[in-house]
Structure formats: C-alpha cells, structure tokens
C-alpha cells in the first residue's frame, strides 16, 4: 500500500492546479519546508507570498489578497495558524466571508517529540464555534487530493487540517466524496465508529477485527466536521446500538461532541469518545496514538464493550 503524507498530496495538487490557473496563490509563514511548498515557490514565485513567522499578518493578508480576486491558500503549521491567528480567522476570514482556504499541517500530535507547544488539539473546537467556516480533515492522500480540488472550486472560507507523516491509504485512487456527507468506509449493523482525519485508517482496521469476532461495525469517515452530516449520525443512532467516535483532538469540543450533539436529541444510543486528554505526554505520534487508544485494538474493544454492556 502506497504511503503518502496528506501535506504532500495537498501541495502537489495545489501546484498542478495553480500552473493552469494563475488566480491560485499560496501563502507561507516561514513554513514552505514543513508544508512542502518548496516546489510551488520555485515554479510559481509570482503566485506565492512569504510572510515570515507572522501568522496574524499571513491570515489578514490572505483575506486582502482574496478581495482582489485571488484564490488564496494560506498555509502553515496548524498549531500556529489555528491559535496565533485566531482573531484574523474569526474576523478577516469567517465574518468577512472571504475566499480564503486555511490549511494547517502537522496537526494533532504529528510533531510528537516537539511537545505541547506544537500540538493542535483545539482546532476543531475553536473553529467550530466561529460562524462561516467549513471545516474538514482528510484521512488520506486520495481524499486530500479531492478536497484540494474542491476547495479551489468552492468560494468561501475553509479551515482544513492534516497531519505530517506518511499515511496508509483508506481509499482507492479515484474514489469520490461529497462535502458535508460522511463517507461510509464500511457498512455495519451492530455498532458505528465515526472517525476523521488520520484516525480513519485505525477505525477501518478496528472494523476488520470486530468482523472476525462476529460484530458488524459501520465505519463513517466524517471528514467534514462542519457542517456535520447529522443525517448520517441519526441513521447510526437508529440502525446500530452504539457510536464510538475517534479523533486526533481533545475530546472537548471536537468530533465526538459534535456527534453527541446530534445523538443527544435522539437519545437512542450511547456515545463513547476516543481522543486526546487536555495535555499529552511526550512521544512519537505513533506512540501517542497507541497510548491514548487511537488504535484498531482499542477502538474495537471499546465498540464491543459499548454494545454488550
């Protein structure tokens, strides 16, 4: 199985599109290396703005640039874009409804040993509360390429976050998706696992483990976090006996709570959230996933416990 990082899938697709469409611009914050934008800067220097380590200016500048008819992608580590520039995201992008795509990379615990200054465990929560933003987290390179093209074709503000490392593909090349609609990775009737971003592959594997144990698990890739596919959550409530959510984010205010918000109104099924605590220990991303239970084994065990209790 090919292993490609979402950030590389994003930048290679962006470059490909920007070569054909001079209205597509990229902005970086001394982050062209970490975002993997170096090729873009060399090949299309006139469609690139380097802001230096100045996220507030980068996001405000992106809003201004978009007001002159440009299709602007402002990029950088998610931990800084989603926190340092939060007011610019709120006012200059969300409130003003500017055509700005904010793409944060190396999100969640991607940076691992760099520590808690570099984790992004708050962005689903903080961005969800801002009016006007579409929020998405792709699960693999295939979905990232699709999402990048979709963003370029869809006017209005987006916040998209992706990880740093290579990820195994969840989908075959050419798979199609619909914004705002959960992608059914596999169908099932006993329990539903709702995941997003780079946790989806673990949810998919969990379903395989559960299948071996005679449990039929539905896996939904909720890559659009806002607007959330409430219908898919309601269907899970009606058609299965429990929901497990999985996210590389604090369990406060993220995917789990967004799902629970819908499920609570129906009150049919229990919802169990797997995610990160308020502060994470230091370790490699893979070690942290394992430690905090974002693993096929733990997701499967959690799902099984939920429906047999």
């Amino acid at each position: 199985m090919a292993m490609v990082s979402c950030r590389k899938a994003f930048t290679s697709t962006l470059l490909e599109m920007a070569k054909k469409d001079s209205s597509i611009w990229a902005i970086a914050t001394d982050s062209r290396g970490s975002v993997t934008l170096s090729d873009f800067t060399k090949e299309l220097p006139d469609q690139f703005v380097e802001c230096g380590i100045a996220e507030q200016n980068a996001v405000g500048l992106a809003a201004g640039l978009s007001k002159t008819g440009k299709n602007v992608f402002v990029t950088g580590p998610a931990c800084f874009l989603a926190a340092r520039a939060y007011e610019q995201v709120k006012v200059d992008v969300g409130y003003n409804k500017t055509n700005v795509k904010i793409v944060g990379v190396s999100a969640g615990v991607s940076y691992g040993p760099l520590g808690c200054t570099h984790t992004t465990m708050h962005d689903y929560a903080s961005m969800r509360a801002l009016p006007g933003l579409t929020i998405a987290a792709p699960s693999d390179a295939v979905q990232t390429r699709w999402l990048t093209k979709l963003m370029a074709e869809t006017p209005g503000p987006f916040y998209v976050r992706m990880g740093r490392g290579d990820v195994e593909s969840v989908y075959d090349e050419g798979e199609t998706f619909e914004l705002g609609k959960a992608k059914t990775v596999c169908d099932g009737t006993d329990v539903t696992i709702i995941a997003c971003g780079e946790t989806v592959i673990h949810a998919k594997r969990a379903a395989e483990l559960l299948s071996e144990q005679g449990v039929s698990a539905r896996v939904l890739d909720m890559f659009t976090i806002k607007p959330l596919d409430a219908e898919a959550v309601k269907a899970a409530c009606m058609e299965t006996r429990g929901i497990v959510t999985v996210e590389e984010h604090s369990t406060l205010g993220g995917l789990g709570e967004a799902v629970a918000h819908v499920a609570a109104e129906l009150a049919h099924v229990p919802v169990k959230m797997i995610g990160l605590p308020e502060e994470v220990i230091i370790g490699k991303s893979s070690e942290l996933f394992e430690y905090y239970g974002i693993s096929a084994d733990n997701i499967a065990a959690t799902a099984k416990n939920l429906i047999v209790r």
């Binding site: 500048l61 007001k67 002159t68």
Partner: peptide, 10 residues
C-alpha cells in the same frame, strides 16, 4: 493593515 497589504500585493 494586513488586509491592506494583501490587497496591495494583489
């Protein structure tokens, strides 16, 4: 001003 800088670049 950041917005204005973006407009001026554009």
């Amino acid at each position: 001003l950041p917005i204005g800088v973006g407009m001026a670049i554009g």
